[in-house]
């Protein structure tokens, strides 16, 4: 089977949709994963006080 324009367009549309869904799911799961909660809260808090000097 040769790679023609219609095939590429069909691939674009279907793979694109697949990626859209997979990507959205991954990002949502990662951000809402319970084990990550404390890490995220700490990261958000920690930057408020970071001015002094690099940690040695």
């Amino acid at each position: 089977m040769s790679i023609d324009h219609n095939l590429l367009v069909a691939v674009s549309k279907s793979v694109g949709l697949f990626y859209l869904i997979a990507m959205a799911a991954t990002a949502l799961v990662y951000s809402c994963w319970p084990a990550n909660r404390e890490r995220f809260n700490k990261a958000a808090r920690d930057i408020i006080d970071d001015e002094d000097a690099p940690w040695q």
Binding site: H5, S12, V15, G16
Partner: peptide, 20 residues
Amino acid sequence: VVASIGGLMEIAPLFTIDET
């Protein structure tokens, strides 16, 4: 990877556009 998909999916088929 995440950023490349859009460009690849949209631009690659245009290079076979001569057929259409």
